[in-house]
């Protein structure tokens, strides 16, 4: 045992010593130091960061893009290059890469972060296309892309809020309340077709979801292609009505079976949810511990 300790010890010392040596006039070491600090900072955000952000890719990236970005980031953070401080971040990269390159795991993960295909629930806000600048407000901006002619007036007046989707030639909201209220008002007013709407915050996600074109179910060679609902507001209403019905039904079912006890599925869901919370607690513990041990 004693011999064991003697031989293992220098390894820890080395990693520390390795970073003291970074004062040496060596370009790699110096650049590495800055990359390390940024990686430590990133680490603290991990709870709020999703795997796509972590790998610096968009949610619809394909296999090849994920792989390329992963390798690029590995070259920056891998402990062989960044030293022991890259350890935590590389573990996260590996985890993210493992999930996103496995189709099943990716589907589950997408569901868990509320990406597109999930059923919408009233108070979940972060799943739409647009992100929020500042605190949530009761109302949100929404561009009816069916009506938009791509005049760029809104983008001109409030460039931090509206963005132009060049592929379909329409404006859309990139960041809710990205500019001050005044510019936003001017932008809304400037629209020649009045297609910028103020909508309820709760409806935003559904609207944005329905607003994106999706592949139409084809019959033979006909009717294939991309489709958008004719009237996105009507479609959203129908959707939500449908959702409410479903919820009511499932509630009725559970009420009918037993008022006191929950269904097996619910119990499972509750259990897995609480488990997830717990695991996060544990992960936090490990991370906190690691941080301590590195100091």
């Amino acid at each position: 045992m004693a011999a064991f300790a003697v031989f293992r010890l220098p390894e820890v010392l080395h990693h520390r010593a390795g970073f003291d040596h970074s004062k040496q006039p060596l370009i790699s070491r110096r650049t590495l130091k800055s990359s390390v600090t940024s990686c430590c900072m990133r680490n603290q955000q991990t709870t709020s960061q999703n795997y796509y952000d972590l790998l610096e890719i968009s949610v619809d990236s394909n296999h090849r893009e994920i792989k390329e970005s992963y390798r690029k980031l590995q070259k920056k953070y891998h402990p062989d290059i960044a030293g022991q401080e890259g350890h935590e971040h590389t573990i996260l990269l590996n985890k993210a890469y493992n999930v996103l390159t496995n189709d099943d795991l990716r589907k589950d993960y997408d569901a868990s972060i509320g990406h597109v295909r999930v059923a919408f629930k009233g108070d979940e806000l972060n799943m739409g296309y647009s992100s929020w600048n500042g605190p949530f407000r009761p109302q949100a901006l929404f561009v009816d892309e069916k009506a938009c002619i791509g005049c760029r007036e809104c983008v001109h007046n409030a460039s931090k809020t509206f963005v132009m989707d060049e592929t379909i030639g329409c404006a859309r909201v990139g960041v809710q309340f990205g500019d001050d209220d005044n510019s936003i008002e001017v932008a809304v007013e400037s629209c020649p077709l009045d297609c910028i709407h103020w909508v309820e915050r709760e409806d935003l996600a559904v609207l944005e979801y329905l607003n994106t074109p999706r592949r139409k179910q084809g019959h033979g060679v006909f009717e294939q292609g991309w489709e958008k609902p004719e009237n996105v507001f009507m479609a959203a209403k129908t959707w939500q009505k449908h959702l409410k019905q479903q919820q009511a039904e499932s509630q009725k079912r559970s009420v009918r079976s037993d008022v006191e006890e929950e269904t097996e599925a619910q119990a499972q869901a509750r259990e897995s949810a609480s488990f997830k919370l717990k695991m996060e607690r544990f992960s936090g513990l490990w991370e906190w511990m690691k941080k301590g041990s590195l100091k």
Binding site: H87, I91, M279, F282, W286
Partner: peptide, 10 residues
């Protein structure tokens, strides 16, 4: 499993 790696189980 790709290294470095961390896995946990309860």
């Amino acid at each position: 499993t790709t290294l470095p790696a961390r896995r946990e189980m309860v």
